[in-house]
Design a protein around this nucleic acid. Sequence first.
DNA 1: CACAAATGGTTGCGCTCGCAACCTTATCGG
DNA 2: CCGATAAGGTTGCGAGCGCAACCATTTGTG
Lengths: 153, 153
Amino acid sequence: MTARPTLERTLELAAFVPFRLNRLAAGTSQYLAIVYQERFGLDIPQWRVMATVGSKQDCTAQYIAASTRMHKSRVSRAIAELEARQLIERVSSAEDRRERQVRLSKSGRRMYTELVPLALARESSLLECLSPEQLAGFLTGLETLERFLQLED
Amino acid sequence: MTARPTLERTLELAAFVPFRLNRLAAGTSQYLAIVYQERFGLDIPQWRVMATVGSKQDCTAQYIAASTRMHKSRVSRAIAELEARQLIERVSSAEDRRERQVRLSKSGRRMYTELVPLALARESSLLECLSPEQLAGFLTGLETLERFLQLED
DNA sequence: CACAAATGGTTGCGCTCGCAACCTTATCGG
DNA sequence: CCGATAAGGTTGCGAGCGCAACCATTTGTG
């Protein structure tokens, strides 16, 4: 690495990767918010639940918490709100009456089919600022970091 | 892009870059927390203020807010706590008596000189999971995204 | 010079979240 | 079969944060 000798005495936050990653994540969230927030009135936890339930019907809150890496209380509240808006339904599981299967309702699925293409288009529109080689390089690094930090499911 | 046709009907959160970036940022913060939290009892806003003031003495809360991208109220409270712990000092500016210059105190500077090498080492230890080419590619993409989202100072 | 608008910074308020305690149901061990 | 422990999910509570209102001071304008 060229820019950083072994013993540096000052730290420039603007060049500090962990800070930059947090800033980028916040910026990206904001960039995306327009599709799920303004248009559909979802906040981030709700959007994540919708996305998860949409691609895996009849899953449990447990599963959603694990795959979104949200705390189970956060998931619980998001589910409750979505259920109140009748976007999802819950049915008690027969074989284990502690858990409840979550699925999209009719109107929930309608929202989902409208939401997904917009979200994906927004992601594409973000990533299009990168050249194909840049994108490939960025994603490779991202994957390696995820593996290193054990962030995958 | 190979993996994603134009009209996708489902969205896999685990493959959705904005989600992955948020997850990575959270993981990175956690990875770093050990140096500033456990060891020095700083939370993230306090750590950012320390880092900023350490590299630019006699700056204002305004400046810290802008360069850390934190809300001014968050900065204000972080500064108040650091001042209570006597890690920083504030002096009213002569030419504009609304603002106050922030600087590290003696013990603040002592903490800073101890903290910075640890933080940088932790960053390095994270980035070492990437090969030099991966790192270069990742940083290039990161820069482009930052520019696109106008996240730079 | 006076008054309006802007700026640096602080603070009350409401919201969100994580933690931990809790309830209910299931599983394990004797 | 019963009691202890665990697991799925909910909720009260406290901490942290953003918003907006506010105070003090400065700058702009007639």
